[in-house]
Amino acid sequence: MGDLATIEAEAVQAVDLASDTAALRELEIKYLGKNGLVTGLMKGIGALPPEERPAFGAKVNEAKARLQTHIDDKATTLKSAERLVQFREEAVDITLPGRPPRIGQEHILNQTVRKIKRVLGSLGFVYAEGPELEQFKYNFDELNYPPDHPAMDAQDTFYVTDDLILRTQGTALQGRIYETVKPPLRYFTVARTFRNEAVDRTHGHTFHQVDCFMVDEGISMAHLKGTLGAFASAMFGDEAKVRFRPDFFPFVEPGVDYAVSTPKLFGGRWVELGGAGMIHPNILERHGIDTERFTGFAFGLGVERIPMMAHGVDDLRHFMDNDLRFLEQFP
């Protein structure tokens, strides 16, 4: 059995010389382990006179504590040096390309549609759909079009039969709703619509429309303007403002064109978005709705117009060409 002071001095020297954490760990076991040299001194305590035993035990414990602290300090120093080496070895070029996950994505038109559904849904409008292949009467007669009126010139129509056409406007849903639902009512739809037009940058034979309408007691153009204001704010930002100018659509009276302006788009210029107005009393009366009690409004707009405005898309054909170089720009 060696002398405590000698052992401790030896241990301190060995710890000071340890070159890595593994060697240090070995020294820790050698001196402070269960059968270590310092711990082992306690075994000799039985040979001492009883009055010396407490003092000896205390001295050994103090030495153990000092040595432990010394080892821990040394471990900290060695470990940080080793980490430095590790980090240098494990260095990556952070400019190398990341591994691309396979991300599915919504088509830009449907991103817009889903936003519209959220906004109008939260304003209490119920979503419904009608057929693309629509009866002539829902597309025109039920919407108060006089037979063969010049108003139809803007609605060049694809015919399947005399009575069956590809709908030219999402508004065609209105008559179908009135047949099954009594007011008060609030509905909207997103409709694929068709016009028999030659295709170029700004004209397509197929495009999409939102149509939204409600009938209740005491509904006025102020409610139409307020709803469009809320809709425009949600779609284009809080600063969006709405303007009406008179226009003619057979299914509304008064009829307006509404324009939106926001400092973020086109330098605040008014941009016409669609038609709107108070639902024509002829339409309500056709469905037995008391026009003294109930009034309603309707508005429509082209879905494509929104991303065209927001992203400066200058060719309508992009939307249905499905070129990934286009689609992937709108993740």
Partner: peptide
């Protein structure tokens, strides 16, 4: 029409959305 104020619709509100 610029004199028309903006107001949100009154009356009964159905459960909107899809």
């Amino acid at each position: 029409y610029e004199l028309i104020p903006e107001a949100l619709p009154i009356g009964s509100t159905p459960l909107g959305g899809t």
